[in-house]
Amino acid sequence: MVNVLKKKSLGVLTLLSLLFVSVSCGDSGNVSIPGVQGPNVNLLEDNLIVSMVLEDVEIMAGATYKVPKYKKSFLGLNPNLEGVGSVLTFTVSLDDIFSADVKELDPKTLPGGRMIPGVASGALPAVAFSVDSLKNMAFYVGPSIFGIWVPLPKFELYGFAWTKAFNVGEKRVGNVTLFGKDEEGNNSGFFLGLSVKSAYEKRLKSLSKKY
């Protein structure tokens, strides 16, 4: 009996060790998420662009969708021309992120009631939305934080949560947290939380030049 328990314990430790290695060896020290290439983050004029390849999502035709409550923002989901899976791209307007209307949305935790990592209250004003191949995505916005929840239904590890700094080049711009399934076998995915303070300052400078 003792030997059986030891074997089981070693098996769990080995699994966690392999997972730790797989999620800690991305470019620029970023987390490498199972089944995901990216995410990649860019600030292009007045838009925050977050893109990634979802290797486990296969679609026949692409589409662009408006994000509820975000008047100038949208997401694109298209077949990956360079390999397996699909390319998911969020184009988020800074006008929307800093909009008073968006900040007045009801605060929400992550799907399944999990607290938002790095946020004292555990919740932020949010809007949830779904497309045909991806259910229960969400945008979160706070005074200096913008976050995206991306579901990963095929990430099978239960009860797992792990947070790491997220960098663009050599600069830390936020955190990324990978979550396994909850007790009901749902809500696995990752949360990308980005600091938008510098983007806000750039936005103010841009507006001041116009006027």
Rank of each mutant, 00 (worst) to 15 (best):
E170Q: 15
K135G: 04
S32W: 00
E45Q: 09
L16N: 10
L204N: 11
D132F: 02
K108T: 04
V50Y: 03
V87Y: 00
K210I: 14
S22W: 06
K197N: 11
T177N: 06
E55I: 03
G85L: 05
Y70T: 09
G189Q: 10
F179V: 03
S188W: 11
R172E: 15
S121N: 00
S9Q: 14
D56T: 08
I148V: 14
G185H: 10
V141M: 02
I148M: 10
L204C: 07
V87N: 04
A120D: 12
T91M: 10
F146S: 04
N3C: 02
A123G: 00
P151C: 10
D96M: 09
L194F: 02
N42F: 12
Y70G: 01
A100D: 13
D182F: 01
L48M: 08
V176E: 07
S133P: 01
G35M: 08
V119R: 11
S51A: 14
V196D: 08
F160N: 02
L134H: 01
Y211Q: 05
G113T: 07
S121K: 07
L134R: 08
N187Y: 14
G159Q: 08
G142V: 05
T64R: 14
D182W: 13
F90P: 03
G26L: 07
K202R: 15
A63Y: 12
S130M: 09
S51Y: 12
I148H: 11
G189M: 07
V127M: 00
K7F: 02
V127A: 05
V176M: 09
N3Q: 11
S93Q: 12
G76I: 05
G147A: 07
G118R: 09
G29S: 05
F98V: 11
V84T: 12
G169R: 09
L5P: 01
V21E: 11
T163F: 05
G118L: 05
T64Y: 11
V57F: 05
N40P: 00
I116Q: 06
L13I: 12
T109W: 00
T109C: 14
T64F: 09
L207H: 06
K7N: 06
G76W: 09
D106H: 10
S93Y: 10
A165N: 11
A128L: 02
V2K: 11
L110E: 02
G35K: 13
F74A: 05
V4P: 00
V21G: 01
Y140S: 05
A123L: 03
N30Y: 06
V131C: 06
N167R: 14
V141Y: 06
P68W: 03
N175G: 01
L19R: 09
L105R: 11
V50D: 04
F139H: 14
K71M: 10
K205Y: 06
P79A: 09
P143R: 08
V141I: 03
L77C: 13
T64D: 13
M52K: 06
F160W: 14
L16M: 13
I97R: 12
M115N: 07
D27V: 15
